[in-house]
Design a protein around this nucleic acid. Structure first.
Lengths: 239, 239
DNA sequence: CGAGATGTTGAACGGTTTCAACGTCTGTGG
DNA sequence: CCACAGACGTTGAAACCGTTCAACATCTCG
């Protein structure tokens, strides 16, 4: 079940056989969701944490004026609401951006393995810390980057994160996200998002047609976006 | 030493005498910083985590075009770079927004107490999770709120967080931050930030002169900002 | 008193949103 | 198989908001 989680964690540090076994032996509950489905509701108090196994998901905050902001994209291997273990009440919703397979593990069991295997506990902790690092970067993008760079940055980040779990092939990956959803991710209007994506295409660094994105010139794209992958912690070292 | 940390944690859950003692017996190293000083450098690999004891600090990301974005404000009691324990390389800097007292604790010791006292470990974990929640909200503010609401939101949040550590008196608190820093916080130009702060003053909900902010009408202000404190987890419950 | 940082103002410019329309694609039912 | 509906993508034009530039005011501190 948690193969993508293994890949996500082992990219950052070694997992012992015992730790892998502890993860595998959690009483996972598997569910599938359709495009647009709500996986966890805002204000709910989950007793399980969810791991994205397949598909694409996002965190979503709804504002009173009807506007929506997506605050994160999640790829397979992401332990999406691990923090629910400590934060109790969800301050945002998690939704499927595409058909998803999601595995749920009870907080009680997660708490137990984290206490019994402190290093594994730290690795879980690390998932939340990386999430936070991603969000810090996102704030910098929203505040101080022009739309073209911001969207280029989004492509870079999704590319690297999907690559960790083997979902990039020859520079191409599936990205089943509408322009309206991209707009809610980057905080722009749909129209301007559309024009910016066209501008990105015109740069020649990427092809982005339908649900497929192909990166032709990684160096050019990451230079444009000033993308430095340090914050993704893609280095294998003791933690 | 870690009185503010106690307050910050005990607002969310009970600490046992043993846990308090474990925190107190860490080999803290105290340092002071002046206004604008760098507390931790971008790209550094700290071996200690820092707790803000007194003053005001911020996380800062510098972009190639010279622009700067502040991604978080930190108040006394905040364990600012706890995540450094797991993330190894700092992807941003931490700077003093005002004269600060900062206490450093070695990662080795933090790792030890977290392993020996799992509940305390979770409480530390929680600090990072709350930080992440704050940042998620910040993303929503940047993407989908107009400047007036955004700055009103900033005031609401700082108010509530300072209140936890007893730094609000009769609706008033010290906020020694220049308008240029506010601009880097909310991602606007200095000029527009200035005009927006004037607009906020004109609303009558707050007085904001020099380093002092006084909230006259909390209900009005939080309604304007659509401020819902759920994400701050100011509820005392087992975690 | 003077220098430098901070706060404030006006005006022009430019980027983004909004509105409205049309094009394109896909899946469904007649 | 075609017609149609509905979702998604694209385009143009006007209005609006935020930035930029430049100047001046104010405050603090040596």
């Amino acid at each position: 079940m948690p193969e993508a989680l293994y890949a996500m964690l082992e990219r950052r540090d070694e997992l012992s056989a015992i730790e892998r076994k502890a993860l595998a032996s959690l009483s996972w509950r598997l569910r599938t969701y359709g495009d647009g489905d709500e996986i966890i509701g805002e204000g709910s108090e989950p007793t399980e944490s969810c791991l994205l196994v397949e598909g694409l998901a996002a965190r979503s905050r709804q504002l009173a004026n009807g506007n929506r902001q997506l605050t994160a994209v999640h790829v397979p291997g992401d332990f999406v609401d691990l923090h629910g273990l400590l934060l109790k009440v969800m301050d945002h919703a998690v939704m499927a951006l595409a058909p998803c397979k999601v595995a749920f593990a009870p907080h009680t069991e997660l708490r137990r393995v984290a206490a019994e295997l402190p290093h594994l506990g730290r690795m879980l902790f690390m998932c939340v810390a990386i999430d936070a690092a991603v969000q810090r970067n996102w704030i910098a993008c929203m505040g101080r980057m022009d739309p073209l760079r911001h969207i280029a940055y989004l492509v870079c980040e999704v590319y690297r994160r999907l690559d960790v779990v083997g979902q990039v092939r020859d520079g191409a990956f599936e990205f089943p996200v509408t322009q309206s959803e991209v707009a809610d991710l980057v905080g722009l209007s749909i129209v301007h998002t559309n024009r910016t994506i066209q501008e990105l295409r015109a740069s020649g660094y990427v092809t982005w047609q339908g649900n497929q994105v192909i990166v032709h010139d990684w160096d050019g794209l990451s230079r444009l976006a000033e993308f430095d992958p340090t914050y993704l912690n893609l280095v294998r070292r003791p933690r």
